[in-house]
């Protein structure tokens, strides 16, 4: 058992492998609950989209398509660097893993910066339900409903990504402190699963909010 493994081993696990298997299973179960958490919102969106097709289409046309598309590419890049970080630590390359984790967190911050820029644009266009919403369209009610879904779902996603950025940064610091090596890197693997899942959710958010707005 390596020093890093010995430091990380906790009760009631007898071996690092047992601890690792349990941690991975735990994260997968958590992801399953997240699927249903976001799933409920996606289904609710689908029902209202079915009832208020035109109003939701108007809402989509108000999206900042360029920022949305760049953000999709940005998250795909981050999921790539996260995978490379795990690949690096598997091969005991701590410095490379540390740098890749930092890059991943930075890319996550770029995503958040772009997302909040987009929110600010919506605010300037008076498209924030509950705070400042104006529309002269006959479909104003359903359009407002669209924006409620938009802010709730992308906001929840942004919270998840912020947590992800914190986790990835923590992993980077712990890697720099020598807590992980080729034999023991469970926490990085688990963080990677979470990061990839957050990326998957964005793919669907992009599909339902942005794509119908393209002309």
């Amino acid at each position: 058992m390596s020093k890093a493994e010995a430091l990380a081993l906790r009760e009631p696990f007898s071996t690092p492998q047992h601890q690792r298997d349990t941690a991975m299973l735990g994260m997968w179960v958590f992801i399953a609950t997240e699927v249903l958490f976001f799933g409920g919102l996606f289904v609710a969106f689908a029902v209202y989209r079915m009832y208020y097709t035109q109003g939701f289409l108007e809402g989509s046309r108000g999206m900042t398509l360029v920022i949305g598309t760049i953000n999709s590419a940005v998250l795909i890049a981050s999921t790539f660097t996260m995978s490379l970080a795990i690949h690096a630590i598997q091969h005991n390359k701590q410095l490379r893993c540390y740098l890749l984790l930092l890059i991943t967190a930075l890319i996550g911050l770029v995503f958040l910066a772009l997302k909040f820029t987009e929110y600010f644009i919506h605010y300037q266009e008076h498209k924030v339900p509950g705070i400042w919403f104006e529309s002269h369209d006959p479909q104003a009610g359903p359009e407002q409903l669209f924006y409620i879904f938009y802010f709730a779902m992308t906001g929840l996603h942004a919270i998840h990504l912020s947590i992800g950025c914190g986790l990835v940064t923590t992993m980077a610091v712990r890697t720099a402190l020598g807590r992980f090596n080729g034999n023991y890197h469970t926490a990085i693997d688990v963080t990677g699963l979470y990061w990839h899942f957050v990326d998957i959710i964005w793919g669907f958010l992009y599909a339902i909010f942005y794509i119908p707005g393209f002309r």
């Binding site: 989209r49 998957i200 793919g203 669907f204 992009y206 599909a207 339902i208 794509i211 119908p212 393209f214």
Partner: peptide, 13 residues
């Protein structure tokens, strides 16, 4: 359009 977009997102997932 949206159906295809969701299917592509599912492939990415």
């Amino acid at each position: 359009n949206m159906f295809v977009a969701v299917m592509i997102a599912a492939m990415q997932a």
